[in-house]
Design a protein around this nucleic acid. Structure first.
Lengths: 119, 119
DNA sequence: CTGTATCCATGGAGATACTG
DNA sequence: CAGTATCTCCATGGATACAG
């Protein structure tokens, strides 16, 4: 999903610009094939890199690293490195990231009601 | 954003499969550059094709038509054609689509709190 | 006014190999 | 264990022209 910028919205839009930008802002943070699920997993407890990779069956290392970096840059998750050998890295939600969880909860509830075809 | 299928999640995933599928299902319905904003506009009242096109400054006709068709196929919006000349088409939310609005509301609130940089 | 048809550019995601 | 570096592929969206 492409990211949406400030440019590109009608100056005469009937609804408040800020509302549109706010929705686009949040959408941008969550744009990515796996981000909703990563945040969902971290809701319960911190996870290590390989734990997430196992939960997200099918994700490649390259993709996972990229999504985690983006989530980190957007301030949604923390990355804590334990200076051990072998390496030990743990990802957890920031308070900002936690505030996204209710959205994902709602998406889960919606999907439980309407998405039965996936079962 | 690519769509997520039933396949691709670990059989031994610690969280309930249904929750993951439910999140992915909802994410799939909303995958698309403009869908959140289209639903947001329809929240207030039905809109005509060109009204939506004007609100979404910058969208091409081809893209708008495609997004509207997908939303319609997924049962989120209604398409009502008034047999007039010139043509008159009105889009409105279905009850299923209305149940998505709280999610978008939350995204708006989140963006209002954290997305000030877009102002 | 509300589209369709066609082509094209872009970027995100996967595959694979390699590394401290 | 937790990455990095490339490469490739293809779905998505945009541009443009045309139409009922």
């Amino acid at each position: 999903m492409s990211r949406i910028n400030k440019e590109g919205f009608n100056e005469e839009c009937k609804t408040d610009h800020r509302e549109i930008y706010s929705i686009a802002y949040t959408q941008n943070l969550l744009s990515g094939r796996w981000k909703y699920l990563i945040l969902w997993f971290l809701k319960f407890k911190p996870h290590r890199y390989n734990e997430i990779k196992t939960l997200l069956w099918g994700i490649s290392q390259g993709s996972l690293t990229k999504q985690l970096r983006e989530l980190e840059e957007d301030g949604l998750i923390n990355r804590k490195v334990y200076p051990e050998v072998p390496p030990h890295v743990e990802y957890s939600l920031t308070s900002k990231g936690e505030q996204l969880i209710p959205i994902i909860d709602l998406m889960k509830e919606f999907g439980e009601e309407f998405g039965d075809k996936l079962e």
